[in-house]
Amino acid sequence: MSSPLLNLVGQQELSPALSGRAGTNRAPVGVARQIAADNDVAAMGLWLAEYHDSPHTFRSYRKEAERLLLWSVQVRGKPVSSLTREDVIAYETFLADPPAAWCDAGLGRRGEHRRLFAGPLGERSRRQALGILAGLFNYLVRAGYLAGSPFVLQRRRARRGSRRTMERYLDRALWDDVLQALDDWPRASERECQRYERARWVLRFLYESALRVSEAAASCENDFQRVRGRWWLRTVGKGGVEGQIPLSDELMEDFARYRRFYALAPLPAESGRMPAILGIAGRSSSLTPTTIYQIVKDTFRRIADALESQDSGKASRVRRASTHWLRHTAATHQAEAGTPVHHIQQNLRHSSIGTTSIYLHAEEDARHASTTQPRPVRSVPC
């Protein structure tokens, strides 16, 4: 099996000392092996292959594996299978301040010599990276490839507060401002009309469906199903979990408008394979999650520029927004509209209702109001 990592670091480029064949953390002889891989690139590639059916997860995990592999052999001068707890601590420091050569903006985002960092990783991104790598090492230990994982010694950081709330969303008033600013886009040329219609549909589709960007990219017209007069969207999310997303008549009217613009039938065909989100000129090939993400970011950037002169605070918040903000915004607005929390859980396909509860802001707002409301001043007799 060819390794997904070979396009960046080939086995032929690694000396025997760096290949991991004799790594100091390799499982001793006699331990039952579940995989045949006998070097780090092949073993890490096999772990990645487990996620071949989830493109978004695959790309994210491959990025973290490649970063660690290059850092291990180029910076620490040792194979991944020789990394210790001290190395993991040093790697976390490296992620917080990678050298300029690793963040060269002149390098492409793809290919053998691509840029691996856009810049230093924040605390949350570092935690995510280390969590992914901990999963990699646990897999290799269970496979009988490694003797142990240096990540198991990681200190468990206390959670800040017993209950989180989601703040990466646009409140209802700001969302209305976003839609209004989008409707003010110029539409004098065919190209401007194409950009407007696509941005208009993408924002509404991601907001109403609360899909992850990878799910939206995979959606085709035969995923839209009408049952007892109501529209639903079938999707397959994380871990292959299937879901049925309720769609409003208003969104289907927006979909019909979008399809008419490209001279398609207003209603999706039951057996049709046309993507839900088309290319700029109506091409039928599917867009990648990265492309859709960039469309959304560019749309929010243009809207933020338009809002800047009116309210710099609003503009700053819109400029930070992304595809996942639309998912959070949808869930928050559903909660504020009184949608039962278990329905929101089903719409977002959360395994735990505790995850869904981070979108319930009404309780905090009520507590704030009751605490800070003006109280009558009692007169004190002289």
Results as ranks from 00 to 15, higher is better:
residue 227 V to H: 10
residue 34 Q to M: 08
residue 200 R to L: 10
residue 94 F to T: 06
residue 96 A to Q: 13
residue 356 T to V: 00
residue 140 L to C: 10
residue 210 A to P: 08
residue 148 G to D: 15
residue 312 S to L: 08
residue 311 D to W: 01
residue 292 I to A: 06
residue 51 Y to H: 08
residue 111 G to W: 04
residue 57 T to P: 00
residue 210 A to M: 12
residue 249 D to C: 03
residue 211 L to P: 06
residue 168 R to Q: 13
residue 177 D to C: 09
residue 200 R to H: 11
residue 371 T to H: 06
residue 321 A to F: 00
residue 154 Q to T: 14
residue 315 A to P: 09
residue 85 R to P: 02
residue 33 R to E: 11
residue 244 Q to H: 08
residue 368 H to A: 15
residue 251 L to N: 04
residue 117 F to H: 00
residue 109 R to Q: 15
residue 323 T to W: 11
residue 88 V to R: 00
residue 288 T to H: 04
residue 121 L to F: 13
residue 175 W to K: 03
residue 37 A to Q: 14
residue 195 R to G: 01
residue 135 G to M: 14
residue 182 L to Q: 04
residue 95 L to H: 09
residue 231 W to T: 10
residue 158 A to I: 10
residue 322 S to N: 12
residue 12 Q to F: 09
residue 355 T to S: 07
residue 216 A to K: 04
residue 288 T to A: 10
residue 67 R to M: 00
residue 273 R to S: 14
residue 129 A to S: 15
residue 268 P to T: 05
residue 347 N to K: 15
residue 196 Y to M: 00
residue 82 S to Q: 02
residue 15 S to M: 02
residue 32 A to N: 10
residue 5 L to K: 11
residue 122 G to V: 02
residue 298 D to A: 13
residue 380 V to F: 10
residue 341 V to G: 10
residue 330 A to I: 03
